[in-house]
Computed example of a mutant assay.
Amino acid sequence: MKSHISNKEKYIFLIVSFSIWFPHFIYLPILSPYIESMGGTYIFIGIVLSSYGLMQFILRLPIGISSDLLKLRKPFIILGILLSATSCFIFALTDSLGWILFARSLAGVSVATWVVFAVLYSSYFTDKEVHRAMSSISFVVVLAQLLGMIFSGYIVNAWGWHAPFWIGGFVGVFGAVFAFFIFEPKESDSRVPLKLKDLLTVMKEPHLLKVSLLSIIAHSIIFTTMFGFIPTYVTSIGLEEKDISLIVFAFMIPHAIATLFMGNVVVLRLGKWKSLKCAFLLTAICTLLTPFVESKIMLGVLQGVNGFALGLLFPLLLGMSIEFITHEKRATAMGVYQALYAIGMFLGPLIAGILNASFGIAAGFFFAGILGLTASGLIVMWGTKKSYKQMGKYPMRL
């Protein structure tokens, strides 16, 4: 640990990290039914949901490169927090579908700064402790997701549709104040700016492209289901808004457990590629079965299993994305990986929204389930006996 970085400074950074994610997840479970209640079609809901990922796909690499060229991290972090709060306040103050699309797009711009968060926080630690640093900051992300999504439905049931947006906005303001006290080590100024030739070299790495494609599929599934149309499905089968929180709870607890602890256990027993294949098969089955379940208990069980399967995928894919990349190019690889998987965050819900509008809400789940089966097929095609036996421990997703 770098001796001049105190625990207090690390805790401040973790609080700020929590404050950029919590505002977006406290309203996410109710976003699609909220838009539907305002007259938004499934296609429009898909566009709104996909705009979040589209902004990240467009801006993550430019933000990372700009940060390296300017040799600055803190201003980007402060800007990201302020945009997060602004997005929530726009949601809270408008009933216009157009402004809702703008607010969700702004949320995507906000979290596109996450690459800078990861780079600055890792600079608080020595090279040997970077994995521990990523685990700590990733736990904060999971905690923000868990707390925000669990309480969302209850908040709406008690205080109305706009309450989560107001709460998220004030949490963002709180985080922005703390962001001014973030410590940026001077040695971060010595980082070598990214070069175009390095970026192109990394982007041609076959292993990185394969893992990124699988991550695109995984993000398409989660942003089509739990972060997309599962809340709408809950209300469409006659359950109440408060029941959304119960389904979210059933998903997020196994998801967090798998992300934090179980991934390494499964990988150690099965190997990386076989673990991926099993997890994709499991999430595909759960997603394909979802439209046939109308019982609250059974839906909760199904989403719990799905949450666990998806929780295995993300940390494993993250570790695999950089395992064959040289140390000096891993930051570039991570930027490429994060930008590419954002494709799934906007393309998945967009296509699902179009399918739902044409064939009913079950169509989106069938689409996501087929994606899971496709990923399993790709893994079987790519995997070799040698790769199945490879084992290792990986950091958690950023």
Rank of each mutant, 00 (worst) to 15 (best):
M1K: 04
E9H: 11
V16F: 06
S17W: 10
W21H: 05
F25W: 13
Y27P: 00
P29F: 04
S32L: 00
P33Y: 11
Y34A: 05
E36H: 09
S37P: 08
M38S: 09
Y42W: 11
Y42T: 02
F44W: 11
L49I: 05
I58F: 10
S66L: 15
L72R: 13
R73I: 00
P75H: 01
I78S: 08
L79I: 12
L83Q: 07
A92L: 05
L97I: 10
W99M: 11
W99A: 02
I100K: 02
I100A: 07
I100H: 13
L101A: 11
L106C: 07
W114K: 13
F117S: 06
F117G: 02
A118Q: 13
Y121A: 05
S123W: 01
D127F: 01
D127V: 12
K128A: 01
H131W: 08
R132G: 06
V140M: 14
L147W: 02
F151D: 02
Y154N: 09
V156M: 10
V156T: 14
A158G: 02
G160I: 08
I167Q: 03
F170A: 04
F170I: 00
V171M: 09
G172C: 04
V173N: 06
F183H: 15
D189M: 08
S190H: 08
P193M: 10
L194G: 04
K197N: 11
L199I: 15
L199Q: 08
L200C: 07
L200T: 12
M203S: 15
K204P: 00
L209S: 03
A218M: 13
I222Y: 02
I222W: 03
F227W: 14
G228Q: 06
I230V: 15
P231M: 11
K242W: 07
I247W: 03
V248Y: 07
A250L: 12
A250C: 14
H255Q: 03
T259W: 09
F261H: 09
G263Y: 03
V266Y: 00
S275N: 07
I285D: 01
L289F: 14
E294N: 13
K296S: 05
K296P: 01
I297C: 04
I297W: 15
M298T: 15
M298P: 06
M298H: 14
G300Y: 14
G300S: 14
Q303Y: 08
N306T: 00
N306W: 10
G311C: 12
G311Q: 03
P315N: 04
E323C: 05
A333K: 03
M334C: 02
G335V: 01
V336F: 13
I343A: 08
M345E: 09
L347T: 12
P349M: 10
I351N: 01
G353T: 04
A357G: 13
A357L: 12
G360A: 01
A368S: 10
T374V: 11
W382V: 06
G383S: 15
K385E: 12
K386A: 11
Q390P: 08
G392R: 04
G392Y: 14
P395C: 08
